[in-house]
Every structure is written in structure tokens, then in C-alpha cells.
């Protein structure tokens, strides 16, 4: 016969088991379809977010609120001389694939400037990261609110 104590033990153990299952299973299933910002940064730049310095010399222009995530205009410019810059990277934190584009510059560009239109799945920062020729990385970002996502 199952006593009250036994019953509580069983319930307790199964609840614990479920919690562990939940912790173990959920992150793997969600990361299978989605790449995290940290992984995308490591893949393209070789370092994580904490290794990238914020800079006021980079300006990211994007709407504060985007009506449609399918078409968000983004413009990046910088006062840093083009001769010192190697490339520009654009990331959106919460997209299934956060990497949007990278641009390799040369002195023939005259100045650091890039504009495009991007897809956004949800409200997220839009990041612009400049890779300088001395190997350093500088970043600026703009938070864009998205009411209707454009990734599905």
C-alpha cells in the first residue's frame, strides 16, 4: 500500500526529474534552429561580446520603431579614417541568424559608410562592429522595436 510519505517521495522525485529534463532538453532544441549572438560573433570575429569596446566614433542610424521587420533601413557611418579600417560587420541579436553582412573596405571608399535594409524577427539591438587594421574591434548599436517580425 502506498503511504502518504511514499507518495510525496514519488511526486518529489518526478518533479525534480522533470525540472532536470526541462533544463537539459529545452536549450538544445531551441539552439538547433537558432544561432546565438555570442556564437555568431565568435564565428565571424573570433571573440565574444565582452571583448568588443563601445565607441562614439561609429553612428548607427535606424528607426526606433519599425512597422515591419521585413524591411528595416540601417545606415552606418564613422569618423574613423578609412585607411585605418579593415571591415564592418552588422549583427541583429535576436535574429535566427544574427549575422547580416560584412563589408571589406579599402582606401578607395573615401570614408566609412554603408547603408542597407535588413530583416528583423523581433525587437532587438542592431549592432555595427568595425574591425580596424591594428586588430581592434569597436562597436555601436541601436535598439529597434519591431511590431511585426519579418523572418518567418
Amino acid at each position: 500500500m502506498t503511504t502518504r510519505r511514499d507518495f510525496l517521495k514519488i511526486v518529489g522525485v518526478s518533479v525534480l526529474g522533470l525540472t532536470f529534463l526541462g533544463v537539459g532538453v529545452l536549450p538544445t532544441t531551441s539552439s538547433a534552429a537558432k544561432i546565438s549572438l555570442e556564437d555568431a560573433l565568435k564565428k565571424h570575429l573570433g571573440v565574444g561580446l565582452s571583448a568588443i569596446k563601445e565607441s562614439k566614433d561609429i553612428i548607427v542610424k535606424a528607426p526606433s520603431i519599425a512597422e515591419s521587420g521585413a524591411n528595416v533601413p540601417v545606415e552606418v557611418r564613422s569618423t574613423i579614417p578609412i585607411e585605418k579600417v579593415e571591415a564592418l560587420y552588422i549583427f541583429v541579436d535576436k535574429n535566427p541568424n544574427p549575422f547580416i553582412a560584412s563589408i571589406d573596405f579599402s582606401p578607395l571608399n573615401g570614408e566609412v559608410y554603408f547603408a542597407t535594409r535588413i530583416k528583423m524577427g523581433a525587437t532587438s539591438p542592431v549592432r555595427a562592429i568595425l574591425k580596424l587594421k591594428d586588430g581592434s574591434l569597436l562597436m555601436a548599436y541601436k535598439e529597434v522595436k519591431v511590431t511585426v517580425g519579418g523572418c518567418g
Binding site: A70, N71, V72, E75, V92, N95, N97, P98, F99, I100, A101, I103, P107, L108, N109, G110, E111, V112, Y113, F114, A115, T116, R117, I118, K119, G150
Partner: peptide, 13 residues
Amino acid sequence: GVSKNPYFAIKFK
């Protein structure tokens, strides 16, 4: 992640 009918602008000297 770039929108449909992509638009790009760069500077040139």
C-alpha cells in the same frame, strides 16, 4: 538577413 530586393549603398572616391 538582408531584405528582399536588397539595397546597398557605399562611398567611393
